[in-house]
C-alpha cells in the first residue's frame, strides 16, 4: 500500500509547527510516508464562491497525484474537502468524467476506487500503527490531563469514528479530560468578518476544557488552534496539536515538534 501525506497550505505558514510535528511523528514511528509531490490547495473555504466543480477539481488533482494508495491528512478542512471530492466523485460519474478530461491535460487521471482519504487520527488508530505508537512511548510520566477537541469538520458531515483522539491520548500516557464541547464550532472563518461572536465561542471552549481539569486542549486543525489561541482567554489550558502531544510522549525534543522553549 502506497502511503502519502498531504500537508495542506497551512503547513507552509500558519501551521508550520503542525507540519513539523507530523513529520517527526512519522519518523519516530518509522512509518514510511512521503509527502505528496506537487500537491496543491484543497480549495479551502474560499472556493465555495465558485462553481462546485472548481473545488472538486482542486481536490481531485491531489487525489489523482496519488494514483493508487492512501492519502493521509491532518488539517480538518483539507480532510473535509478531499473527503467530499472522494464521496461526490464516486457517486457523480458525469462530474468525474469532466474533471478527468481536464486532468488529462497534465497527464493525470483520478479513479475513486483506487485512492482512499484518511485522517491522521484514523490512520494512527489502526491496529499496527497503534501498537507501534504504544511500544514507542517513553517513560511513564504523570498522566497530564488533556481535553480532546475535534471541531466541526472532523464531526460533520464526514464524522470520524467516535473516540479516536481519546484513544490516542490515553494510550500515549495522557489523562483524558471529558470535554462535552468537543464537537462544537471554534468560529471558523469568523475573524475575517470581524464578528464579536468568535470571542464568546472560543472563550466557552477553553472554559469547558478548564472546568474539566485539562492542562492542554488537543486539536488537529490549524484554524481551530489559531482561533482558540487568539480569541480564547489568556488563562486556562494551552492549545496544542495532537501530533505535538504524542511526539512529547515519544521523547522527541520540543524543538523538533515546532514547540518553542518555555511554551510548555
Amino acid at each position: 500500500m502506497r502511503l502519502f501525506y498531504y500537508p495542506g497550505c497551512a503547513s507552509q505558514h500558519l501551521a508550520r509547527d503542525l507540519h513539523q510535528a507530523v513529520e517527526a511523528l512519522f519518523s519516530a514511528l518509522e512509518l514510511e510516508i512521503a509527502p505528496l509531490e506537487d500537491w496543491n490547495c484543497c480549495g479551502a473555504r474560499e472556493v465555495a464562491a465558485e462553481s462546485p466543480l472548481v473545488g472538486l477539481l482542486l481536490a481531485a488533482r491531489n487525489l489523482a497525484l496519488v494514483q493508487e494508495g492512501r492519502l493521509i491528512v491532518t488539517c480538518s478542512l483539507c480532510y473535509h474537502n478531499l473527503k467530499l471530492a472522494e464521496k461526490e466523485l464516486s457517486r457523480d460519474r458525469e462530474s468525474l468524467r469532466q474533471l478527468n478530461d481536464l486532468l488529462a491535460e497534465e497527464g493525470l487521471s483520478y479513479s475513486p476506487d483506487s485512492v482512499r482519504v484518511s485522517h491522521l487520527l484514523e490512520f494512527l488508530c489502526e491496529k499496527d500503527n497503534l501498537s507501534r505508537l504504544v511500544s514507542e512511548v517513553k517513560g511513564s510520566g504523570p498522566r497530564t490531563p488533556v481535553a480532546p477537541f475535534y471541531g466541526c469538520f472532523l464531526s460533520r458531515p464526514f464524522g470520524l469514528e467516535a473516540g479516536l483522539m481519546e484513544k490516542l491520548l490515553d494510550l500515549s500516557g495522557f489523562g483524558v479530560a471529558a470535554n462535552p464541547l468537543k464537537h462544537h464550532c471554534c468560529g471558523g472563518h469568523l475573524p475575517r468578518t470581524d464578528s464579536p461572536v468568535i470571542k464568546e465561542l472560543c472563550g466557552r471552549l477553553i472554559y469547558s476544557a478548564g472546568r474539566a481539569g485539562a492542562r492542554f486542549l488537543g486539536v488537529c486543525c490549524p484554524v481551530c488552534r489559531l482561533n482558540l489561541e487568539l480569541y480564547g482567554p489568556e488563562e486556562g489550558p494551552r492549545v496544542l496539536y495532537v501530533p505535538q502531544l504524542l511526539g512529547l510522549k515519544l521523547g522527541l525534543p520540543p524543538a523538533a515538534l515546532g514547540l518553542e522553549d518555555g511554551e510548555l
Binding site: P180, L181, E200, R204, Y207, S208, R211
Partner: peptide, 11 residues
C-alpha cells in the same frame, strides 16, 4: 442544553 455555561458566573 449544556452543563458548560456561557459565562463562568453561571457555573
Amino acid at each position: 442544553v449544556s452543563e458548560v455555561p456561557w459565562s463562568p458566573e453561571d457555573e
